[in-house]
Nucleic acid binder design. Structure first.
Lengths: 127, 127
DNA sequence: ATTGACGTTGACGTAAACGTCAAGTTATTG
DNA sequence: CAATAACTTGACGTTTACGTCAACGTCAAT
């Protein structure tokens, strides 16, 4: 079965990051593509890793935290305590996001008030 | 009516930031406390501003964005287009947060799978 | 054989958000 | 009055996450 692989710029295009970024992630131990001579060859697994990195960033993880999660996950497959640790970290992150969401609801509520005040101020003239 | 004021370290303690941080926010045009000689005197309004700054940070705004929102808000009180812009920016942020939440739900879903796999692997022995 | 696209490794630069002195000022208190 | 605490400005340091060259390798196509 012919394993599909990717070049660095293919991945860069697909995920809208620069090649520099991808190499940087490798530098940080987040990716370990194979080589064909000098050239980097990315497997499906590498591609998934990149997806996970970017998702991690979107939920506010630092690259170091992502790295630690990868390491934990790799080591955790057969180790329950580490898996629990893994889950605990993510639960904590979930709670942080929940707080963020609460914050933004507050902000949006305030905005609503401001808006209605403004519309009242502008009055019946030319809204 | 005696306006209650605050020293820099009072605010620092209350919000668990350093005085350096508060001065830095002033440097960035986010706060403009009065002075008694050299000393900074923070009013209730300044305190509210600081709360807003920290809340803004929690929802992922940069200090620059917060600054722009303050400026917009100050200028917007009587100007509808700017108010709409103000609201638009926050709506965009709300959407980003929503995406973050979706991301984390995905992650947590995956975690659930991994956990159950792990428990299955550990089997009936000593879970 | 040369051009062009793509890739490579350094090395240095940058922006954000503070931390960390240093060196001086002001206020209070024993 | 001297010590101490709290405050000030200013300058330089730090971390994260890349951007930006420079200088070179490689491979396919003309």
């Amino acid at each position: 079965m012919a394993e599909h692989t990717f070049s660095i710029s293919e991945l860069a295009r697909e995920f809208d990051v620069t090649t520099r970024t991808i190499r940087f992630y490798e530098d940080q131990g987040l990716l370990e593509p194979q080589r064909a001579g000098q050239r980097r060859i990315y497997s499906r697994r590498d591609r998934v890793r990149l997806m996970l990195i970017l998702r991690g960033k979107r939920i506010g993880l630092s690259l170091l935290e992502i790295r630690e999660l990868f390491d934990l996950y790799d080591a955790a497959s057969n180790d329950e305590p580490q898996l629990r640790e893994f889950i605990r970290i993510l639960s904590r992150k979930e709670q942080q996001l929940q707080e963020q969401l609460d914050d933004i609801r507050v902000v949006l509520g305030e905005i609503g008030q401001i808006r209605s005040q403004c519309e009242k101020a502008l009055g019946k003239q030319a809204v």
